[in-house]
Design a protein around this nucleic acid. Structure first.
Lengths: 221, 221
DNA sequence: ACTTATTTTTAGATATATCTAAATTATTTT
DNA sequence: AAAATAATTTAGATATATCTAAAAATAAGT
């Protein structure tokens, strides 16, 4: 199955939007995601449908097929492996990698990507804590623990915070912690279960045990 | 100056063809190089001319401008740096890298390429012995010596053989040595100045001093 | 249920990159 | 120098990817 660069980008967008809701993906949602017009999306949808990577009935929205999902996951795999490369090997900051990875993900060569995977030591998640699908498109859910369970000198990536509590979220916002933040536990305080942590290799601060319990981190080896 | 992927490929082809002859580059030569038709080349030439990267008068062939040369050299720089990466870091064979590098050379990010350069240790030549232009487009001629001057356990890349002597070339062909071949000197024989060499990490054989004098190798650190 | 509003699709244009076939210009041969 | 050959350009088509504006279908409000 050969897809053009544009087709790949549409498919990836549809895959991501499929994740958000179990429903079919609407034309407008795709247009929004890709900053294009609904008319263009309509055209492309017909093409992708003809290639069997999505199911589509007029006015009914689209659903990604199993084939389409596999292809999308390979593109995502490439994107995330390149991100790891950029951060780990070329010392990019993990907030600078997206645009370049967006280009690199379209390079065609299965040898390249399996060699890159090996070179990077078969990483399981990208610098934002997102999992890297394997060559079959399988995603191994990354092991995760609350920050409070991390021992000193270990690093994790924020993957989940309780979205139910606005006051906590406001606080996290203030200290600059967000989904994807890299947290390193510098020191644990036995007395109150608080911890001295480093956020994104810059800020250092103490976090109460109460908060630490509520923040899920993916374990970074 | 922004060029499309196709425009970049045309410019690169024109640059390479300019090297071969001091004359202007003909439409047909470009068409041949890019496996396309003269009519398509004519169209593209007008576009590139409008962008001032080539000089062009109808029916008179094209000449690359200084601006065009600079751009072409940056593309070549990217191509060759990626080739080094593929061979040195991802253990590609040096005859497998071209197609992938052909894609990677179009990735747009000056940060990426300068970081890659640094990561690779600022290499001066690619796996085929071709020089890597620096960020200003300057090419440092790689230091080169006849094979006969190489000492034991040093490696070089064949960059020049006398093209005047068919019997020598026929012999080199037979032993599998060509431009770009990686030669490692295993042992030097004092008696007759012959040398035991390894070609492209496979074949090993003795080479007479007479032949060794005529083969120029680029020094690989 | 009917009207209104929204969403989606179609129709028709534009821009890039390509091609074939025909016309034009340059070169070579006699 | 005229005729034949080769190289190059133009004209007109096709395919991709995009857009605006208008039409059609669906969803929402009363």
């Amino acid at each position: 199955m050969k897809l053009s660069l544009t087709e790949e980008n549409y498919l990836k967008a549809i895959y991501h939007l499929s994740d958000d809701s179990a429903e079919g993906v609407s034309t407008n949602a795709i247009a929004e995601e890709l900053s294009t017009k609904a008319a263009s999306v309509s055209d492309m949808i017909r093409k992708l449908s003809k290639k069997k990577v999505i199911d589509y009935q007029k006015y009914k929205g689209v659903q990604i097929t199993e084939i389409g999902r596999k292809i999308a996951l390979q593109i995502i795999r490439k994107h995330r492996l390149w991100e790891v490369f950029l951060v780990e090997k070329l010392s990019f900051n993990w907030d600078e990698v997206h645009d370049v990875a967006e280009q690199l993900e379209h390079i065609k060569s299965t040898t390249l990507i399996s060699r890159l995977d090996e070179f990077l030591g078969f990483p399981t998640m990208d610098p934002h804590g997102d999992p890297i699908p394997d060559e079959n498109g399988d995603i191994k859910e990354s092991p995760q623990l609350p920050l409070s369970e991390f021992s000193e000198n270990t690093t994790g990536i924020v993957v989940k915070v309780p979205d139910s509590d606005p006051s906590l979220l406001r606080h996290l916002d203030k200290i600059g912690m967000k989904l994807g933040s890299r947290i390193r536990v510098i020191e644990k305080v036995e007395f109150d279960n608080s911890a001295l942590i480093n956020i994104d290799q810059s800020k250092e601060l103490y976090l109460s045990g109460e908060i630490a319990k509520n923040i899920m981190l993916a374990i970074k080896e």
